[in-house]
Amino acid sequence: MSFLSHLISGISLGSIYAIIALGYTMVYGIAKMLNFAHGDVIMVGAYACFFMVSRYEIPAVVGVLSAVVICTLLGIIIERLAYKPLRSATSLAVLITAIGISYFLQNAAQLLWTSNPKVFNSLMGDGSVKLFDGRLSISVTAIVTIVVCVIIMLALTWFTGRTKMGKAMRACSEDKGAAQLMGINVNFTISMTFAIGSALAAIAGVLLCSAYPILTPTTGSMPGIKAFTAAVFGGIGSIPGALLGGVLLGIIEIFGKAYISTQLSDAIVFVVLIVVLLVKPTGLLGKQVQEKV
């Protein structure tokens, strides 16, 4: 039974990673940049929801929605002010700017909300579902997390496959120049991608803090790095890859903690990542790009 319960908590943690990884992978796919500030947008989303719900006592659903709106606006503003002027610069320059934004968000959060940890009460309550005569107990938070992740995946797959905007995004990630010639507004499409990524980050922030209820200005950085790893693991730029990578990473992490060593669980995750990348250098579902001279 303990195996099953570890498996479920692994999938639930992996679902959070997957939602964060979607933000990384979409932005990477379209703007070819590693957005290191993404982890801190998660933190902002979690704080926004925390203040809405526990300070101003707004209903949880409205709190989550306003966190989503705040993060979406934040994502668009960051993109406009910091990344858009660097569209033609080297990827390293954009990377360093993203790190600057990440420092900025962390320190602004520290000034506004101090570094004292806040205890985030799970929005889903702390109930649990008991199965097999109570031998297996699954928390409601874990169930909600998995369901939300599945819904987001289905919605995104529909969005990128069927809608005009989604098709524009895929076109831009394939070839920006050609997309522009076909009348697609590339700048707007990139802004939209950031908006969607940041909205997902807000949801991930709420889910993350519902499962691990300590909220500090650096809450987002380690899950951010792990989710980035998950995105690469599954093949960066690929949406199903982000899901697969995230869930596998979560399961490996929880199993590593449970069966091998708590201290070494991070090392185990990264060892698996390295082995996968050595066997399949573009990740599990990544596209092989033929090199040409």
Partner: peptide
């Protein structure tokens, strides 16, 4: 970027 992420992973390990 794949090389970059593996160096990150080794750093954490």
């Amino acid at each position: 970027d794949y090389l970059a992420i593996v160096t990150l992973a080794f750093g954490e390990i």
